[in-house]
Design a protein around this nucleic acid. Structure first.
Lengths: 251, 251
DNA sequence: GCCGCGTCTTAACCCAGGTGATTGGCAGCT
DNA sequence: AGCTGCCAATCACCTGGGTTAAGACGCGGC
């Protein structure tokens, strides 16, 4: 029983059922715990991924740097999230993964996962499913960044992060830590920092949400989710019903 | 030995090695062949996917309809492409799959694939890898639609389709069938049909490409790929080296 | 040979969001 | 206290792409 395995089991349990034996096998997984200072990458574009990553604390981001230095953030990873599971069967990293703030991550060698995947159908199913859910999130981000106006982009983004934080057990009194700068947010939703700033004030004034000192608080879920045209189905959570999700206590 | 299995084996062979036995097992897969008239969906948002789809001829598109009827296309599928492999472990479809033009598809029941995945590590690896490559494509589309200006979006899109058509053996004399309307293209890259039209003429006038009567011809690969800042690595093909890809003869 | 419809093309106008530059607050360091 | 760096907040101005509308060019059906 390890912190890393426990967190992975918890996370996989959010998107499907785990038998007692499968759960035990995952919980028994171990690996290296590493401190990752802010702005430091753990895997870079072009690297060969050899480990799965489990976020234990802090916040990670997946991103690429495009022409003229433009950065596109593909996803953020909250504690218990597991980026890099795709390195199991994709050798060449086409993006980078780094820490937004000082973070702690667990690293599980792929070999350990190959073994479990081969032996246990239940584990295979959930890990595979996890990679597919991430693909669904990329599709949703594609839709959001291509089709929605600025205020809806921000609202949609906040809704997603809120739901994910909620099921991960990170939400306290309708708020959770989202320690990103407006510029980082801009790189995620495909706007400029200036326009993000302008647009944030609209959402604040509308009373939908508050976001200060790195903490997001949802004031009016109905308004926020309607503004962002948000439907959480694409997250494929076991309990998907908007903000009124189950308790979701940590491992 | 069936058309469906043969096409799937060919397609998986593009992204990885298949042992003789694994290949034989895939080639032996069979399923229903179905004619899909243009604009008809084969799977709809909200459905439960129960089959993998193999495109035998024609062209499919994956899409969602957003607020105010806006359509976002997430991907196109050329002959030998295999959408819906994600339905193996995702029960609820969060998008639709339909025919752009009259098409023929093969349907393989998921049960058959579960069996093979459980029995054969090599097959499991390649099918999983295929779903991960599609996720990488979604990430690239996210970057493209969020960060690139209109002319680069179009160039990037054409580059991707060209490379994919090339490895599928569909390219003859630097051209292949891309029977979509400008409006459909607009819904893929996140522009309006009018602006797509304006921008297409720039690319044409620059001599980079030609696109008439549903057939795309690349005139100047260097110019086109530079305009679109295109790097084919994200497709994770076995032979990835721009337009000068291997022969790629069908089945 | 004509009609109807889908698609492409073009034009005139408009606005959401980009650009660049400045200010002020706040935290950490010396 | 003063300095440095980061980040939020604004302002004035600009432009890429959206919007609306109106022809033009096929092409299949009758």
């Amino acid at each position: 029983m390890t912190v890393i395995g426990e967190n992975l089991a918890f996370h996989l349990g959010l998107i499907g059922e785990l038998s007692v034996e499968d759960r035990a096998a995952i919980v028994a997984l171990d690996g290296e715990v590493r401190e990752l200072p802010r702005h430091k990458d753990i895997i870079r574009h072009g690297d060969r991924g050899t480990h799965a990553v489990i976020v234990l604390s802090g916040l990670l981001q997946r991103y690429t740097i495009g022409p003229e230095g433009k950065r596109q953030i593909h996803s953020f990873y909250l504690p218990t999230d597991s980026p890099c599971l795709e390195t199991l069967y994709i050798d060449y990293m086409d993006n980078s993964l780094g820490a937004v703030i000082d973070s702690r991550v667990g690293l599980i060698p792929n070999e350990q996962l190959y073994r479990l995947i081969g032996e246990r159908e239940g584990v295979r199913k959930l890990i595979w499913r996890e990679t597919l859910v991430q693909a669904a999130v990329f599709r949703e981000w594609l839709m959001r960044n291509s089709n929605l106006p600025a205020h809806a982009k921000l609202a949609h983004f906040f809704c997603e992060m809120f739901v994910r934080a909620k099921v991960a057990g990170l939400v306290i009194e309708d708020g959770f830590d989202l320690p990103i700068t407006q510029e980082t947010l801009a790189d995620a939703v495909g706007l400029t920092a200036v326009h993000v700033n302008r647009t944030l004030m609209l959402l604040r004034d509308a009373g939908a949400m508050e976001w200060r000192t790195g903490r997001l608080t949802v004031k009016d879920w109905a308004k926020l989710s309607e503004t962002g045209d948000f439907d959480p189905h694409y997250l494929h959570l076991r309990a998907t019903s908007g903000a009124g999700l189950g308790e979701g206590a940590r491992g």
